[in-house]
Design a protein around this nucleic acid. Sequence first.
DNA 1: AATGAATGAGCATTCATTCAT
DNA 2: CATGAATGAATGCTCATTCAT
Lengths: 203, 203, 203, 203
Amino acid sequence: MPTKKKPQAIPAPERRGELLATAAEVFAAQGYNATTVRRIADAAGMLAGSLYYHFDSKESMLDEILSTFLGELWEGYDAVLGAGLGPRETIEALVTESFREIDRHRAAVAIYQKEARHLAAQPRFQYLVESQERFEKAWLGTLERGVADRTFRADLDIRLTYRFVRDTVWVAASWYRPGGRHSPEEIARQYLSMVLDGIALRR
Amino acid sequence: MPTKKKPQAIPAPERRGELLATAAEVFAAQGYNATTVRRIADAAGMLAGSLYYHFDSKESMLDEILSTFLGELWEGYDAVLGAGLGPRETIEALVTESFREIDRHRAAVAIYQKEARHLAAQPRFQYLVESQERFEKAWLGTLERGVADRTFRADLDIRLTYRFVRDTVWVAASWYRPGGRHSPEEIARQYLSMVLDGIALRR
Amino acid sequence: MPTKKKPQAIPAPERRGELLATAAEVFAAQGYNATTVRRIADAAGMLAGSLYYHFDSKESMLDEILSTFLGELWEGYDAVLGAGLGPRETIEALVTESFREIDRHRAAVAIYQKEARHLAAQPRFQYLVESQERFEKAWLGTLERGVADRTFRADLDIRLTYRFVRDTVWVAASWYRPGGRHSPEEIARQYLSMVLDGIALRR
Amino acid sequence: MPTKKKPQAIPAPERRGELLATAAEVFAAQGYNATTVRRIADAAGMLAGSLYYHFDSKESMLDEILSTFLGELWEGYDAVLGAGLGPRETIEALVTESFREIDRHRAAVAIYQKEARHLAAQPRFQYLVESQERFEKAWLGTLERGVADRTFRADLDIRLTYRFVRDTVWVAASWYRPGGRHSPEEIARQYLSMVLDGIALRR
DNA sequence: AATGAATGAGCATTCATTCAT
DNA sequence: CATGAATGAATGCTCATTCAT
């Protein structure tokens, strides 16, 4: 947790961040719907009603958690996509960036995995749909470039391949624990090795 | 599926099955907790209270859906595991069987993915834990055999590899729609090709 | 339970009686409100809905149980009250008759004790109020006669005495089990001895 | 009683007490099962859900009402039983204490009378059984001492006598209204006179 | 900033009752 | 006579949210 908040006057935006981190952890552990505002408040050491001084609603906490996460994710992705790398290097960089993101925002990623689909139906979470579309465009485009320049195999259904790679990376958030045996970079390397070269021994 | 039953003298135990299929569909679409008994009843064309003539509780519907699914899954898996196949053929058969299961029980698989973790804490759903342990033993054992006999690569963390393969297969339930472009067997073949040989073109 | 019902044709009024006895037993054991129609049906070996062939409603079962009991009770009481006995002999006869009634209709008496007060508010059970009024008149009148002719003590509040005697007798239904150690007449004798002469040893 | 609280800074734990008194009154009047949480809330001038801010459940209200009552009852009883009185004086003191308790906790006593038997089956209300056993031991023991020292008659079945005295006292709660014509002590005196010496005039 | 108390809508579940067969 | 299936109103309870202090 960040520094001690200053005695007074200043709005203490850090408090927001702390509370959101707490909320994200609980949402990830119990699921958004199953999480009561009271449990978040308990975890934050306050009463349920007090959260409403900081946030409009339970939903707006979720909103802020997800949009903050997606903001940072796209910062990283955009840097990769704008770097002019080849298809294979782009995939490698995106996967590595993804595992770093899982490391930094594990709770947010887990929430995203569980809740994105049904949240996407609400206007408020329209940006989830947009993000997903950009996401698909970036990955699918890279795979297509790779097939075209013979980096990737041409005999696979490309949408199936896209889903394979995408899922393969992100589900890791469901078991990944920051500070565990493997660093995000190490996990990325192993995953890339499996995705690119397969698990069968080459002869 | 909520097709109206024919105006004949249908035996009745089928009614249970119909209702469970309806419930599974709704659970899969909205999540177990977010699904109200009323919505299930709506989908079944009856009133909420009427469901309780057939089932003890919302939870017992979930229970019956999951245990039925796992029962059939293990029937298939046990046949594969008892067939005396080599590691690669075993993995191929398990993956194919899994996609067939996704095809037959898409809703149940989706529910399992979303809810298994927190349900496992309840005594009533202890069998989820047991199933998961058997599952892990079967897959991990096969991978280890494969590493030993040089079917699979020895340079990968084996637990990471297990998770990779496992997740890779089952998340497919989140996008798979029965009756779509690809048959389960076709999807299995493509997934196996990616998992075993990778997506990179071999030189 | 009575004789085997005849093969057909005749409406079998005995069946009603059997069912009412079953219902009374369950009402007495669990309380009227807490008793579900299903439990009565279970105890009678049929399904809940089937009871409605015999009775209009759960309430009408209760009604029939109570009115039958009160009918028999008043038959006995009226015989006593019309016999021209002295106050002490009247009290003795009423108490003895009451214990006989408890012996014959234990369930009904227990139900009466628990439910009469709040049932009395409903028009349908108006007869409970009337019965209670006749009851009070009979007992109070007898006690007053006894005070007047110096059979009973004059130094006691007569309404208090009435309640004392009345409650004393009827609560016995809450612990009395037919076929137990004491016959109704034996219990009546002991109660009368206590009520009339007290439990203290006379010097 | 639902008197509006004064517009001051009242400590708040009193609120619990007020609500419990209200609930007890309703339970006593309608029976525990027949009482809806909504009716209690109505009587307290709030909505049903609001009660759950103060209490865990309807059952825990009942629990608190009964255990509070029994706690105070045993405080009084223990003082009497520890005072080293003779059998007759002990009975007199217990009866007087009981009527005082009825005066103070009329609703709780009435609830106890109606519900204790079936509540006793639940583990949560085990203390009702224990209390009843201590109760029986105290009364039965006192009666036995009295028979031994020739204070009480030897020609009566002692268990029957116990039930007689016990019921005789406690049913009074069903008609007693605090603030009525007779003080608890006056009623106790009359009851004792009847129980000990009988209602028949001595010659 | 936070508390304590309350709101009100909604939920899973129960149950007396109905009715076609 | 009895069953199987359904109804619909009510019940205990939960929970996001509000607001005066």
